[in-house]
């Protein structure tokens, strides 16, 4: 493998007051990889993503992104976060700003790019997700699916090297889920590096290069072939977990 390693997690250990959420966790992510992380609620998936962009501090272990250490309170954390796009489960748009203002805020203020240039790019991105007519709308005027697509555009406009998706469709009505997943699928096709936490199993199967199954803060099963994993999970815990999604 001569592909470039983007992100490396070594012996990550994270606990909340004695409750261990991540146990000695290792992961290496290469450029262009789409990794889907699944597992039961409370297995540490979301915490893992939050540690990667330094929203949570870890007790021990090391996170390296593009050669630089990620630490919650370090000085360069803002620099690193600019390169890591994150979309959350809750609609996290800024309610007092329009769609366009939401998107251009960080590129203009953090990256100090020219407003005209950023606006132009924002409009192109909005067009790609079919929302260019909503550029002057406020978040409260959008549906849940539209908000999440704007949140994705907002992350993309920073030109991140990796995108983290934390259960972005979990709070959506079923008919809204599709439009968001389609957007993500498109990004995957274009070669974006993505780490996706989701409960949408058929989407995971379609989008993933690699599947990680977490339970109790540990990596229980890993597979480079989503098809194999979903059809013939090797571990008992994964089998049990996947069965909960099936109906007889």
């Amino acid at each position: 493998m001569d592909e470039k390693e983007l992100l490396r997690l070594e012996h990550l250990h994270k606990e909340f007051g004695g409750n261990v959420v991540l146990k000695d966790f290792d992961l290496s992510v290469k450029k262009g990889e789409v990794i889907v992380i699944i597992g039961p609620s409370g297995c540490g998936k979301s915490t893992l993503l939050r540690c990667i962009n330094g929203l949570e501090a870890v007790q021990s272990g090391k996170i390296t992104f593009e050669g630089a250490p990620v630490e919650k309170n370090s000085k360069n954390i803002s620099q690193i976060r600019q390169k890591i796009g994150m979309v959350f489960q809750s609609y996290d748009l800024f309610p007092h700003k329009t769609v366009l203002q939401n998107i251009i805020l960080a590129p203009c203020k953090v990256q100090k790019r020219k407003k005209e240039e950023v606006e132009q790019e924002a409009l192109q991105l909005l067009e790609r997700v079919g929302l260019n007519d909503k550029k002057d709308a406020f978040p409260r005027e959008l549906s849940g699916g539209q908000k999440q697509r704007v949140a994705i555009v907002r992350a993309l406009c920073m030109h991140p090297d990796i995108l983290l998706f934390d259960e972005v469709t979990a709070a959506l009505d079923p008919e809204m889920v599709r439009e968001v997943l389609d957007t993500m699928l498109e990004l995957a096709k274009q070669g974006s590096t993505m780490l996706i936490v989701t409960h949408e199993m058929s989407f995971a199967r379609a989008v993933a290069d690699r599947i990680l199954f977490l339970d109790g803060g540990e990596l229980v099963e890993e597979s480079n072939s989503p098809k194999d994993f979903f059809d013939h999970p090797k571990t008992e815990r994964a089998q049990k977990f996947l069965q909960t999604f099936e109906y007889e």
Binding site: N53, L55, S78, Q79, R81, Q82, I84, G85, M86, F88, S90, D92, L93, F94, L105, A106, K109, V110, Q111, A151, R154, A155, M158
Partner: peptide, 17 residues
């Protein structure tokens, strides 16, 4: 809400920003 702080941080905004 807390996620307002977090999504701002995730975009690379400093505490002051």
């Amino acid at each position: 809400p807390r996620h307002q702080y977090e999504s701002a941080q995730a975009l690379g905004l400093s505490t002051v920003q």
